[in-house]
Nucleic acid binder design. Structure first.
Lengths: 215, 215
DNA sequence: TGACACATACCAACCAGTCGGTATTATTTG
DNA sequence: CAAATAATACCGACTGGTTGGTATGTGTCA
């Protein structure tokens, strides 16, 4: 929004960014634990070690903060997936299955540790705060888009005549995960989410004619 | 809770139930639109045509109301599905596929019209209000259980050696739907949810060796 | 010396829940 | 069967704690 004129990054501005990042990343935990509406600005401040004055120095409103949390979540997670090992496989289908296996692997700990901030935000704000929801939707669909190239290649190679699009299959992986998170929240643990991801894995293998692990 | 001693159902007690039901069903809309935390008791009262005193005459707290909303949602939806036409098919797999087609068919209108109250509640309350979350989880998994008999029969008939359980497939249908709702909320319409249900349909057909509609 | 990153103190609006009251309907009693 | 009594359904003003946001002060660094 603001134009940065003649402002070389110095110690001051990196300190600023550090506080901002702390405020934003604090949101990951709080939103996953209680949702946006139940998260108080005071909670955010306490968890980030900043006072309310500091918070509103960085964000014009709680809603603006939430939209930034959604975008920051997108950045942080895309870093995580970019560096994940499954990209090394030479076969595109192996990369897709590797992605799914990776998603399954990181389903550990309490629900607040593996669920999706963007999904939670989208759920809560879809009708009341479109700015936040759009930011959240942007990170979800942006992440889905990163799968499209490999799915496309795999489709060309294994089943190019199939009548589904790579985009919709990429989105389906995200839908499955988001749904798995809800069931995990309802049950109180990650086990059921893993079962759901196993079905996703089985679906993708059936779709591409790759034999299923255990069948 | 209260023991009903010599209390034949009369005009008074049905009036009570009518108000209660109005208060509860008002919750369907409000929770789907804004979630639980953002729903004010005054909103509920205004929408149901009752004052605050009336509300707290029927429910000890907002949380107790929410848990009752989750249970009432289970009752109302189970009525809807019990009377749906897909049960008439003689082949169990046709009944399962009929269920999926039915779920796809009712994805219409605004997100507040087709999304799941129980899923929304579970999402919001999983760590903060276990009573509510358990009630919501009860309706989700209870609904999934209604699919198990047909899935079991279909499995026996078409693929009895497969290494997935009917229970987990039933749960997977629910995960897919819950995830589809989140993507629909993020996108702002039911189209993407239909795409997701199409993938679910394709998965089930592949699993049972029943040819896919369009391939 | 002034821009900036924060702190402190404060406020007005909001909100779940309370409480005393009223109107209507059931139950008991004479 | 009517009058008295009790129970219930609901009202709406009020409250006290909460909450997002503000106004203003202060220390630091370029």
């Amino acid at each position: 929004m603001e134009t940065e004129i003649a402002h070389k990054p110095n110690a001051k501005s990196t300190a600023r960014e550090a506080t901002r990042a702390r405020l934003l990343e604090t949101g990951f935990t709080l939103i996953r634990e209680k949702g946006l509406a139940a998260t108080r600005v005071d909670d955010i401040c306490a968890a980030a070690g900043v006072t309310k004055g500091g918070f509103f120095h960085h964000f014009a409103s709680k809603d603006e903060w939430a939209a930034d949390v959604a975008r920051h979540w997108g950045k942080v997670t895309s870093g995580l997936f970019e560096n994940a090992p499954y990209h090394q496989a030479s076969d595109p289908l192996d990369r897709v299955l590797g992605y799914i296996a990776f998603r399954r692997m990181i389903l550990e700990g309490s629900t607040a540790e593996f669920t999706c901030v963007a999904g939670t935000l989208a759920q809560e704000t879809h009708l009341s705060e479109r700015t936040i929801c759009d930011a959240a939707g942007g990170t979800i669909f942006g992440h889905a888009d990163t799968l499209v190239p490999d799915i496309s290649l795999a489709k060309d190679q294994y089943c190019h005549t199939a009548n589904w699009t790579p985009e919709s299959l990429a989105q389906f992986t995200q839908a499955t995960l988001q749904g798995a998170f809800i069931l995990a929240k309802a049950k109180g643990g990650p086990e059921i989410a893993k079962d759901m991801v196993d079905h996703l894995d089985r679906y993708v293998r059936l779709l591409f004619g790759r034999e299923t692990k255990g069948d």
